[in-house]
Design a protein around this nucleic acid. Structure first.
Lengths: 115, 115
DNA sequence: CATTCAAATAACCGAATGGTTTTTTGTCAA
DNA sequence: TTGACAAAAAACCATTCGGTTATTTGAATG
């Protein structure tokens, strides 16, 4: 479904950009859930929840195991690695900022409490 | 603009879910760029690029410094931390998987090359 | 002052998004 | 075999999205 790495990032970030879908992932992180077990947890129709799950599936974040007439969904965590690695490339920028903040705090402490 | 933590995640993940916007961030990671310097790097109109920058700004990923008639954009990396921390909560799931994979590889090596 | 240049604003367009209700399609059980 | 149940599929709707062109605003420059 997803071809290139850029398309994978598109799909994963888009899937994560919705609070209902993030909630679904949180539930699946705890344990696998059937679709009909997932749906009542949200104030929207079961069809809408099913659509969200399909979006998560398309991004590779969720896998579905069909058992008769119930569909068991489980977290597929490796897809999160795509997003994580992209973010890691920027890690040095925010750690730089955090270091600068820490430095400032040290300075303030020294000024407020001169030995 | 962004009120709650959930809204912040919505805005950041949505901003990252577009290849043009990710490219803009990559350029700004290298160094700050004027808007008019940013625009020609993309096969779309300057207005479209300006809109993308506004989306990034709304997510807190980019800050703009107006200097006369040119607008200087720079990366605001702390907003990425929001996304990074959300992903970190799932880190144990994929590292579990990676460990399992590593274990399998070890096993295959042992089987293929019995001492 | 008139011009030029950077950017925003406005108006518009087609496609995608998030939601709905209704209608199939299967599968389990009485 | 006749329901009942789980889920998908279809049709629909309003809003948002990513893009366009044309117009306006505002600062630098001749």
């Amino acid at each position: 479904m997803v071809e290139t790495r850029e398309q994978a990032l598109d799909a994963v970030f888009h899937a994560l950009a919705d609070p209902t879908r993030r909630s679904i992932l949180r539930m699946l992180a705890e344990r696998p859930h059937g679709l009909s077990e997932l749906a009542p947890a949200f104030p929207i129709s079961a069809v809408a929840v099913s659509k969200h799950v399909r979006t998560l599936e398309a991004a590779g974040l969720v896998a579905r195991q069909v058992q008769g007439r119930s569909h068991l969904c489980r977290l597929e965590p490796m897809a999160l690695l795509t997003a994580h690695r992209w973010l890691q490339a920027y890690e040095r920028f925010w750690s730089q900022r955090l270091d600068a903040l820490e430095g400032l705090l040290e300075e303030m402490k020294r000024d407020a409490d001169p030995a």
